[in-house]
Amino acid sequence: MLDVHRLRVFRSVVASGSVQAAATNLGYTPSAVSQHVTALQRETGLTLLTRVGRGLQPTAAGNALAAEADRVLARVGAAEALVADLRSGRTGSLSLAYFASVGAAWMPHVVSRITSELPGVRLGLSLREYIPDTPEQRPDIQVAVLRSEALGGGGFTAHHLLDDPYVAVLPAGHRLAGKEEVDLVELAEERWVDNDVARGWCRRNLLEACKAAGFSPTFHVEAHDYPTALAFVEAGIGLTVLPTLGTAQLPDGVTWVRVARPTPMRSIYAVVQNAAAQIPAARVALTALREAADQI
């Protein structure tokens, strides 16, 4: 088993460029740093550093180990922070990621619940549209749009929160604005405002539904996000079709109508690290997310 302390010393040598600089940064003697690096090379059976002039340069193996050491030390740091929190009487920390339309609609309620029930918790929030491929980069909880084939496994559990149907957002004076619902095909000849130029799953889901209705929409304007697309609709530029959750803060002068035959749908989940599932803040967050989803 690799010694974590030796990894720290080795990483410092790689970052500092020499044993002397690493010793200065760490507050060690150069001899102690050299001993740690030598022991790590003996432990791994690899040549990790090579001398270049008066400094040291990592070998290919050294670079690979240094990159992995960053991930290992980050996780060790998180564990040490948790121990410090628990030792000082704080309730720990929670990292929580969410996508844009959830931010305005749900996160105020979720954060309010966590901070009122667990005022000592350290809460780290981040905006993410995609789940990172590397498990080490994932937060304790991530609110994400998932397809059924992408659920579960890898030390994480996906909790279903909401099936979010798409609606057509129209200027208030549009010919279809007074209807309770419209067939998707009725929008085929309209001027469309795109709301997801990142070409994510939500947009692909919409385009598949349009194909099922026998047409491909013509986007006259491309917006990068829902609020901008809604502002274009308010200006009378066209209509946009987006999930219901994206209509939480509609501007004046626009309205939405349900879309049918077919109704595009996205499924929203809370993806929870199994290791974090019993953290008090994680339990409160999951409860609050379910409450927010139930209000839709």
Rank of each mutant, 00 (worst) to 15 (best):
G103D: 08
G103I: 03
G103H: 06
G103R: 12
A104T: 14
A104R: 14
A104H: 05
A105N: 12
A105D: 09
A105C: 09
A105R: 15
W106H: 08
W106S: 10
W106G: 08
M107V: 08
M107D: 05
M107Y: 02
M107Q: 03
P108K: 11
P108C: 10
P108A: 14
P108V: 13
P108H: 11
P108S: 14
H109T: 12
H109W: 05
H109S: 08
H109I: 07
H109M: 08
V110I: 07
V110H: 04
V110F: 00
V110D: 07
V111M: 14
V111P: 09
V111A: 15
S112W: 12
R113E: 13
R113V: 00
R113Q: 15
I114T: 14
I114Y: 12
I114P: 07
I114Q: 15
T115C: 07
T115M: 11
S116G: 10
E117H: 09
E117I: 06
E117K: 06
L118K: 11
L118F: 08
L118D: 03
P119Q: 14
P119T: 12
P119E: 04
P119Y: 12
P119L: 09
G120E: 14
V121S: 13
V121F: 05
V121T: 15
V121C: 07
R122A: 15
R122M: 12
R122F: 08
R122Q: 14
L123I: 03
L123F: 04
G124D: 11
G124Q: 15
G124A: 15
G124T: 13
G124K: 09
L125Q: 04
L125M: 00
L125D: 02
L125G: 00
S126M: 11
S126V: 03
S126W: 01
L127I: 02
L127G: 03
L127Q: 06
L127C: 00
R128F: 04
R128K: 02
E129V: 01
E129W: 05
Y130I: 01
Y130K: 04
Y130C: 00
Y130S: 06
Y130E: 08
I131T: 07
I131H: 01
I131Y: 00
I131A: 01
I131V: 11
P132A: 02
P132N: 03
P132S: 01
D133A: 10
D133N: 05
D133S: 08
D133G: 09
T134A: 09
T134E: 05
T134N: 00
T134M: 02
P135M: 02
P135Q: 09
